[in-house]
């Protein structure tokens, strides 16, 4: 089924110079392979096309069920040079969670139960 990434993952973002980093974490172990399949460098690059002028690197952290993305040339020069409202990319995490992905219904419904506190999560 087509859902937003926020149904199966959480995220956090920040700055590294002119690059933004976005870490995405699967809510349950079964959601990890879906992250790997769906949240590719190309899709992340397209999602952030309005801000990301450079390449996107993806790193895998299977131990945390996480992917880490580096979005190069995305913060208007970074630090105090930038004129951007979000010069540190702090809101990029919630933006990425709006990405539409394809996920099996049973994984999504397990994740729903994690989000409501019914199941413990990772």
């Amino acid at each position: 089924m087509n859902v937003r990434l926020e149904r199966i993952a959480i995220a956090r973002s920040g700055d590294k110079g002119d690059a933004a980093n976005v870490g995405v974490i699967a809510l349950i172990e079964e959601a990890w392979p879906i992250l790997v399949r769906e949240v590719t460098e190309a899709r992340v690059s397209k999602h952030f096309a309005a801000v990301c002028k450079g390449r996107v690197d993806r790193f895998e952290l299977p131990n945390l069920g996480a992917l880490n993305f580096l979005l190069h040339e995305s913060l208007g020069g970074g630090g105090t040079v930038s004129l951007m409202l979000d010069a540190q990319g702090k809101t990029f995490a919630s933006s990425l969670l709006e990405l539409e992905i394809d996920a099996p219904e049973e994984v999504v419904s397990l994740c729903d139960r994690v989000l409501t506190g019914e199941l413990p999560g990772r």
Binding site: I10, A11, R12, S13, G14, D15, K16, N21, G23, V24, I25, F59, E60, L61, P62, N63, L64, G65, A66, N68, L70, R122
Partner: peptide
């Protein structure tokens, strides 16, 4: 986990003056 990935570069090469930490080895 959210804090662990915050301001993360290459997780295998977290460079500090005293060692290079490998965040892909963390068991949580």
């Amino acid at each position: 986990s959210e804090q662990l990935v915050y301001e993360m570069g290459d997780p295998v090469e977290y460079i500090t003056p005293d060692c290079i930490a490998d965040f892909s080895t963390i068991q949580l």
